[in-house]
Design a protein around this nucleic acid. Structure first.
Length: 590
RNA sequence: GCCCUUUUAGCUUAGUGGUAAAGCGGCAGUUUUGUAAACUGUUGACGUCAGUUCGAUUCUGACAAAGGGCUCCA
């Protein structure tokens, strides 16, 4: 989307927010409108509803009123006003007055717009003629939101909506939302028996059921193999550590999701919230030479984070998560090359999961709050310059993200687009000059001098749990064969076919095809239906015809009828051929 | 954490101030089946703790959990 189109869309949505404000104030006398901006996928408008309470059921009525009001909105009249005029004009609306006072203080002009029947304080940015342009909008939901996003302030009522220039675009958006709902990983996770979150175990602590555990292991093993191919060394570290460790690393003060400490032998310990300081110990375990670098220390490391109860969400936000973590210790002259390697690795891995569209964010310090970060100005400037150079040389489209840096260094974050066009931040590669100081790391260079290394903190999937949630939605539960927990379901038609089916089951299982034998006393149709709903990629049906065709008890002499989960009948195939076909698909990751 | 909503059997849902209905599932039996649900029977639940009441799953409160939302500034 070009910038102009983007501006137009924002103007359209901002205009819709004004129309919403007018309509709500008409329907609910005394309601006060606060802010109402265009946002990424639409717009919202906050209200202090006074004595009224509204819910999603009231939206059609409000939307109807908006449509009634729309024809009279043919053009806007804009005016600049003084603060005292603003106080007078908006005397019934303390939110507008508060904003006007703040803008005046900030030296901003105070502006109003008026389409003829609804004066509002406004920052500008509207479509020329709403009655003609604003025809494709929809109200989506009602939610609570704090005035100015601060939980100490009053809770207002927020109405979300969206608007698009064309009916097609609006329909597409609505379709996407519905599709996302269908693909919800909590729903599919339940249907396919991938995971549960048990109330007795606790919120944010998912339990992976057999099928989900298989998926986990496939992902974790895949990551391990890809990294081992590239000289990453896997380690294992314990799940708790002395609190002091995190004081030294600085996480204790800068990181707000650490669990409360527990006491062991009069010393305080905490559950591990990040793998970094543990991996530093690997580096520090013996003197290092410049020849040892880059040293890539990797672990699928489980950590515990005390996320606020309100933000927990399925597998997306949990309290126990496994990071596909790497800490790579490099000489400063190796930073560029190692980053290049890492970016290629990320691209390769993500494309195996079907993610091919991405952008890169260069996450930098928040200039206004430099106190949030550890380390001195010189080191930070050096790191930020280095990372921008890497981004520039990468050939990947990138943009700056001020305030998104880690407390110890700037990051490259890769944002991937999924099958529904939603964006996810998974991979991150952070450049750290600060922790080598904290932990007094060094290596001996070619002149025998002690030198500090730099550290790259790398996670590709991020959290394995969250990533599983993402790919469940990416594939809508229809996993490619290499990821499918069950790859083949063997379906004998009648009891007399079970023995033969069991033989085939044994052969495919021994050939590393994840096979299940459905020998329940059910009709073939019911078994097909169940396997299809479970989205098992292939079914192998065995009846009289297959047994008659089969000869010797060898893979090339045993036949089954193969059906795909999409309902395609692939005909009678011998077991050797079927195994081969699946192995090709597994290898190609399709 | 805060605001709103929700919580009835393994799952999806119905319903009531006098302890609850159904489908799927589970179990038992019958059936032995040709590409998305065979038949019969049976089992099984009001989130937890208080309060009001003769009596609470239903009303009130607290707690817990789940869902939506809470930095995108007129």
């Amino acid at each position: 989307m070009s910038k102009n189109q983007n501006d137009y869309l924002n103007n359209l949505r901002h205009t819709a927010a004004h129309l919403l404000a007018k309509s709500v104030k008409e329907l609910y006398p005394g309601a006060k409108n606060a802010i109402g901006p265009a946002i990424e996928h639409g717009f919202y408008q906050d209200f202090d509803m006074g004595k009224y309470k509204i819910s999603d059921e009231d939206l059609p009525k409000i939307e109807q009123r908006m449509r009634e009001n729309l024809p009279s909105w043919t053009h806007f009249v804009f005016n600049e006003i003084t603060l005292s005029e603003a106080r007078k004009l908006f005397k019934d609306n303390p939110y507008k007055v508060e904003m006007a006072e703040e803008f005046a203080k900030g030296g901003k002009k105070l502006l109003t717009n008026d389409p003829g029947n609804f004066l509002d304080l406004c920052k500008m940015g509207h479509v020329e003629n709403p009655s003609k342009e604003l025809n494709h909008f929809r109200l989506l939901k009602v939610a609570g939101a704090y005035w100015r996003g601060n939980e100490k302030n009053k809770m207002l009522t927020r109405i979300y909506g969206t608007a698009f220039p064309t009916k097609e675009a609006l329909d597409k958006y609505v379709w996407q939302q519905e599709e996302a709902l269908k693909r919800d990983h909590k729903k599919i996770g339940h249907e396919q028996e991938l995971f549960i979150i048990s109330d007795e175990v606790g919120p944010g602590l998912p339990i992976f059921l057999p099928q989900g555990a298989i998926l986990r292991h496939i992902i974790e093993e895949y990551i391990r193999r890809e990294k081992e191919k590239r000289n990453y060394q896997f380690v294992w570290t314990p799940h708790i550590a002395r609190s002091k460790l995190y004081m030294k690393s600085g996480h204790w003060k800068k990181y707000d999701a650490m669990f409360n400490p527990m006491k062991l032998d009069d010393e305080e310990y905490v559950p591990k919230a990040m793998n970094c300081p543990h991996h530093f110990q690997v580096y520090l375990s013996k003197p290092r030479s410049y020849r040892d670098l880059p040293l890539r220390v990797a672990e699928n490391g489980t950590v515990y984070r005390y996320e606020k109860s309100g933000v927990l969400n399925g597998l997306f936000r949990v309290r126990c998560l496994t990071i596909d973590d790497t800490h790579t210790f490099v000489r400063h002259d190796q930073i560029g090359e190692e980053y290049e390697n890492v970016l290629v690795l990320i691209k390769d891995i993500m494309s195996d999961f079907g993610f091919n569209k991405y952008k890169m964010r260069v996450s930098l310090r928040d200039e206004k709050h430099k106190g949030k970060y550890m380390g001195n100005e010189k080191l930070w400037n050096k790191a930020e310059d280095a990372i921008k150079t890497v981004a520039e040389n990468s050939g990947i489209e990138w943009y700056e993200g001020p305030g998104e840096a880690a407390f110890y260094g700037p990051k490259l974050d890769l944002m991937f687009e999924d099958a529904l066009g939603r964006e996810w931040q998974c991979a991150t590669a952070q450049l750290d000059f600060v922790q080598p100081e904290n932990f007094d790391m060094h290596y001996t260079d070619e002149n025998g001098k002690l030198v500090r290394p730099a550290i790259l903190h790398i996670a590709i999937l991020g959290s394995v749990e969250r990533f599983m949630g993402i790919i469940i939605e990416q594939f809508g539960g229809k996993f490619p064969v290499w990821l499918a927990p069950t790859q083949l379901k063997i379906i004998p038609i009648a009891d007399r076919h079970k023995e033969f089916a069991a033989k085939i089951y044994k052969i495919t299982s021994q050939n590393s095809i994840r096979t299940e034998l459905d020998d329940r006393n059910e009709t073939m149709q019911a078994k097909i239906r169940d396997a299809t709903l479970q989205k098992v990629p292939y079914m192998g049906i065995i009846g009289d015809k297959e047994m008659e065709k089969s000869g010797i008890d060898k893979p090339e002499g045993m036949f089954l009828s193969v059906r795909s989960r999409d309902g395609k009948n692939l005909g009678q195939i011998d077991v050797a051929q079927l195994i081969n076909k699946l192995k090709v698909e597994i290898e190609k990751k399709i």
